Amino acid sequence: MCAKILVVDDDQKITTMMRRGLTFEGFDVDAANNGRECLMKVLENSPDLVILDVMMPDMDGLEVCRRLRKDGNIPILMVTGRDSVTDRVEGLETGADDYLIKPFAFEELVARVKALLRRTETAGNPADTLHFADLTLDLAAYSAIRNNRPIELSTTEFNLLKLFMQNPKRVLSRDLIMEKVWGYDFQVESNVLEVYVGYLRHKLELHSEPRLIHTVRGTGYVLRE
């Protein structure tokens, strides 16, 4: 079965272009022209991935992303003409799994979409659980529990935590983590990894639990007690 993709942009020329191109690539594509329509279509059709423009009237893409993330782990690829590091981090902080800057080559859009879908499939297929200290990650149910407390994770947060839990007590370099979780190189100045480690730490330590993800200065991170 082909993956269902929802394209959200207030510019109908862009949604038409993306819809035609992604359909040609074999995806089942629907479109929404504003944030409220997007939220409605997500509820009605349960797409496998959302391509979301940031700059929209009424309800912008950042607010749409926040609302989608509250209700589930659907992969979100945010698309925008705002290209500063601050803008990228803001998009990722709302829960987006990836960030693509306009103008972009259509081939890159397709590659990002396929990478996100692969990450989701890989995370959801194995019927197994990972354990470390008082933390449990259920790979089949796509859920995490620490000290009997459920933890809600976005797609990227889940994949990042999975990598750490598959390599306990092993120092993972920044480059290795970027390759395994994001699947391609971000721009050098991007601090997307630091942002997501911060998200995980906040969620894992919400009730003052001991830190599990530690920084190894000049190298990367390690999961240890």
Rank of each mutant, 00 (worst) to 15 (best):
T156A: 01
E194D: 14
K169N: 12
H202C: 13
Q166D: 07
G183F: 02
I177Y: 03
N167R: 10
L161C: 04
L176S: 14
V197T: 09
R174M: 12
Q187W: 02
F186H: 15
K203T: 06
L172Q: 05
Y184N: 13
E152W: 07
L160G: 08
F186Y: 14
L176R: 14
H202D: 15
R201V: 12
R174D: 10
N167L: 03
F164T: 09
R170N: 07
L163I: 07
L193W: 00
S173V: 08
N159F: 01
T156N: 03
M178D: 13
Y199V: 04
Y196R: 15
Y199P: 00
E194Y: 11
H202F: 12
S154D: 11
P150E: 04
S173K: 13
L176K: 14
V188W: 09
L160N: 10
E194I: 08
L160R: 05
P168W: 01
V195F: 01
E189C: 01
G198R: 00
E179F: 06
F164C: 06
E179P: 06
S154L: 04
K203V: 05
S173N: 09
K169A: 09
Y184G: 08
V197L: 12
E179T: 12
R149A: 08
V195Q: 08
V195C: 11
L193T: 02
V192Q: 13
V171L: 03
G198A: 02
D185M: 12
N191M: 10
L172T: 09
R201E: 12
G183W: 01
L200S: 07
E152D: 15
Q166H: 03
Y184M: 12
Y199I: 00
G198P: 02
W182F: 15
M178R: 08
R201F: 09
T155F: 00
D175A: 14
Q187E: 13
D175F: 12
N159W: 00
F186K: 15
T155C: 06
R174F: 05
P150Y: 02
E157K: 00
F164G: 08
E194H: 11
L193H: 03
V181P: 09
K180S: 10
K203H: 06
K203M: 04
T155Y: 02
W182H: 14
R149Q: 12
Q166W: 01
E179H: 11
V195R: 09
D185Y: 08
V171T: 11
Q166G: 00
F158W: 02
P168Y: 03
Q187I: 10
V171S: 09
V197D: 05
M165L: 07
L176I: 13
L161R: 04
G183E: 03
G183C: 05
F158D: 04
E179N: 13
S154R: 10
S190K: 00
M178S: 10
S190N: 10
R174N: 13
M165I: 02
L163K: 09
Q187G: 06
E157H: 01
N159E: 11
L160T: 11
T155E: 12
G183Q: 05
Y199F: 14
